[in-house]
């Protein structure tokens, strides 16, 4: 059973008056992370919106110890920190219980510039949690395309819409034979919380990817951030699953699409709510774009369905 909202812990690591945009999915996500991980954790951040929203030195908006690191260094820095903690604990030089090490990284630091070090850490099964908050673009620098930007979405470097598909990073990470992997949505905070707790209680390299709809990048109304998170899941543009030791289990509502007990909504509404698709959806192109997205979703579902049964 998914943890009910009223049973989520009271711990708050996001301080009021932080520097994030109103309606930011990253701070919304970090709040749940704090609830799941509790106080004994250390966070590493590569350049991203969350670093900008910490606020200017000497003030911080997050009640965790945070180390800012180089962009390509999420996997390597977290690994180095964990190795050091383990070594110091063995030598009796660590005060108190060994803290949980986790990274809070955007899609740039995960899919693109950070992928090499991340892949190496996953291959070594280093003992930390990598969380990717995926806003499907380099939002911090003003919304340029990333390896996570979906086809047809406009960014400042794909002004008429991206021509190629995004990488399937969750599956790429799964193929590193890691002990735990999950995808999550802000519309399902209890599910996200449960996945974080499961990750916390697993040893080795754990990967969690959160869809983080950025209203300034995706061009929708701020108040719709949770709603659009939900619609992404309901149309299958964002698939919800977890994998313990490589075994994929779907979580709802994706589970119903896989079971065949429900069909995904048409992506038409999800796409048309977002200004980043406006130019792709213009005129005669509209049908082609919607159909293309729908068939890509069907193909992604089919691929995952096959993977889950093998």
């Amino acid at each position: 059973m998914t943890t009910a909202i009223k049973n989520l812990p009271r711990d708050e690591i996001v301080m009021a008056g932080n520097g994030a945009c109103g309606g930011c999915p990253a701070t919304a996500g970090l709040r749940i992370v704090g609830k799941a991980f509790g106080p004994n954790a250390i966070c590493l951040m590569t350049p991203s919106c969350s670093v900008a929203s910490i606020g200017l030195l000497p003030k911080s908006s997050f009640n965790y110890p945070i180390l800012n690191i180089c962009f390509a260094a999420a996997g390597s820095s977290a690994a180095g920190m964990e190795y050091a903690l383990e070594s110091m604990q063995k030598k009796g030089r660590l005060n108190g219980e060994k803290p949980l090490v986790f990274t809070w990284i955007g899609d740039g630091g995960t899919y693109d510039i950070g992928f090499q070090a991340l892949s190496a850490a996953a291959e070594r099964n280093d003992d930390f949690i990598h969380i990717c908050y995926n806003n499907e673009a380099y939002s911090n620098t003003g919304v340029q395309r990333s390896g996570a930007t979906p086809r047809f979405a406009a960014t400042t470097t794909t002004p008429t819409g991206k021509q190629c598909d995004k990488k399937n990073l969750p599956l790429l990470m799964l193929d590193h034979h890691i002990p735990y992997l999950a995808t999550a949505s802000l519309a399902y905070p209890g599910d996200f919380y449960d996945k974080l707790v499961k990750a916390k209680n697993t040893k080795g390299f754990r990967y969690i990817e959160l869809l983080a709809p950025c209203y300034t990048g995706w061009k929708f109304a701020a108040e719709d951030m949770i709603d659009i998170s939900r619609k992404a899941v309901n149309c299958g543009a964002w698939l919800m699953f977890e994998a313990e030791n490589g075994k994929i289990e779907f979580t709802n509502p994706t589970k119903k699409f896989v079971d065949g007990t429900a069909t995904p909504d048409s992506p038409a509404e999800y796409l048309s709510m977002q200004g980043r698709y406006t130019s792709s959806l213009k005129g005669d192109n509209k049908e082609f774009v919607i159909n293309s997205v729908a068939s890509q979703i069907a193909a992604d579902l089919q691929l995952l369905r096959q993977r889950s049964t093998c």
Binding site: A73, S76, S77, G80, M81, A84, R93, A120
Partner: peptide, 28 residues
């Protein structure tokens, strides 16, 4: 040698691992 050896995939990662180790007070 009472130490952990991290076989990283490149030198950028080697130095990045060292800085993060130093951040928890370790000798790297």
């Amino acid at each position: 040698m009472n130490c952990r050896f991290l076989p990283v995939e490149g030198e950028h990662s080697a130095m990045a691992a060292c800085v993060a180790a130093a951040a928890v007070g370790a000798r790297a």
